[in-house]
């Protein structure tokens, strides 16, 4: 991680990952996984619940960030 902190691309990458974590926590805490009063559960394609969809989006964001940084900027690549 020391090598990641030593250049701008690395700092951007770490900030991006931290932002996804904060975004996930904020989404959870603000009640994005719950059902509004009198509402129905969120189901994408008729079966994917909100926690599943949120997690898949989170993993995809990490995947994209990792691909860009590790294959273009990582100092030890």
């Amino acid at each position: 991680m020391r090598e990641v902190m030593e250049h701008t691309a690395g700092k951007v990458y770490l900030t991006y990952l931290a932002a996804t974590i904060v975004g996930m926590v904020v989404a959870i805490v603000r009640g994005a996984m719950s059902v509004p009063e009198g509402g129905e559960p969120f189901l994408l394609f008729g079966w994917m619940t909100a926690p599943l969809v949120a997690g898949i989006i989170f993993v995809l964001l990490w995947l994209v960030g990792y691909l860009v940084y590790f294959f273009k900027f990582w100092p030890y690549r």
């Binding site: 974590i21 996984m33 926690p51 599943l52 997690g55 989170f58 993993v59």
Partner: peptide
């Protein structure tokens, strides 16, 4: 499904 957040955290 709430417990699945353990998995998402673990993957990261």
């Amino acid at each position: 499904p709430g417990y699945v957040f353990f998995i998402w955290g673990s993957v990261a």
